[in-house]
């Protein structure tokens, strides 16, 4: 897709190749970058990640990426967070001491004891509200999860999907120009690819937040 500039943020948190390949399959060439200028000029941002909140936040700070990412979200352009890319949007995490990006009020909490941690494998997402990125995804679809902590936003109106693992947690958050998921769509087979396809289609057809609602 010529001219469409989707950018994957690289902050040394996990393998980004599969995210890139999933976007490729959805018809978009996406650059992987940690260059703030590239982020500033992006049409859409994908913010994936795996690993620990603290080291990731430190990495974002050291590479002066915190402000560019926040500015990008404020600009109203499409933003897609994946796994840690959802958790880092909150104010802080039980996992560490570093503050998060603080875009979303609330905290990241540890999954309750008594079940195996990490929560690893396929689990269902109960959809609470519709969203263009979730179009064509049946309610109760399975997605692949790998995580030990979950996002707990104060404002429950952003919760677009929930998943049960000892606690019913927010597995999809969506508001304005932001959608962020706890699972790995790039590892969730057809259902997961659907999210990337929808995202790419949306970026192509509706590059501003007004069209997201």
């Amino acid at each position: 897709m010529a001219g469409l500039n989707i950018v994957i943020v690289d902050y040394q948190a996990g393998n980004l190749r599969s995210v890139q390949k999933a976007l490729e399959r959805s018809g978009a060439q996406a650059a992987i970058t940690s260059d703030e200028r590239v982020i500033k000029s992006a049409d859409a941002l994908v913010f994936p990640g795996q690993g620990a909140c603290d080291s990731s936040m430190r990495h974002l700070r050291e590479h002066d990426l915190v402000e560019p990412i926040k500015a990008f979200i404020r600009s109203g352009r499409p933003f897609f967070g994946v796994c840690l890319g959802l958790q880092l949007l909150l104010e802080g995490s039980d996992e560490g001491v570093e503050p998060g990006l603080g875009i979303l009020k609330g905290r990241v909490r540890r999954l309750p004891d008594g079940l195996k941690i990490p929560h690893m494998g396929w689990n269902q997402v109960k959809l609470l509200k519709g969203h263009p990125v979730l179009e064509g995804v049946p309610d109760g679809s399975n997605f692949y999860f790998v995580h030990s902590y979950y996002a707990d936003p104060d404002d429950r109106s952003v919760v677009a999907g929930v998943t049960d693992y000892g606690v019913e947690f927010c597995s999809v958050a969506a508001w304005e120009n932001v959608i962020a998921v706890q699972f790995h769509p790039e590892k969730s087979g057809e259902n997961g690819l659907k999210l990337y396809e929808n995202f790419v289609r949306l970026v192509k057809s509706a590059p501003t937040q007004a069209a997201w609602r």
Partner: peptide, 8 residues
């Protein structure tokens, strides 16, 4: 509920 996995 977490699904049990089948892995070839």
């Amino acid at each position: 509920m977490l699904s049990k996995r089948i892995i070839p």
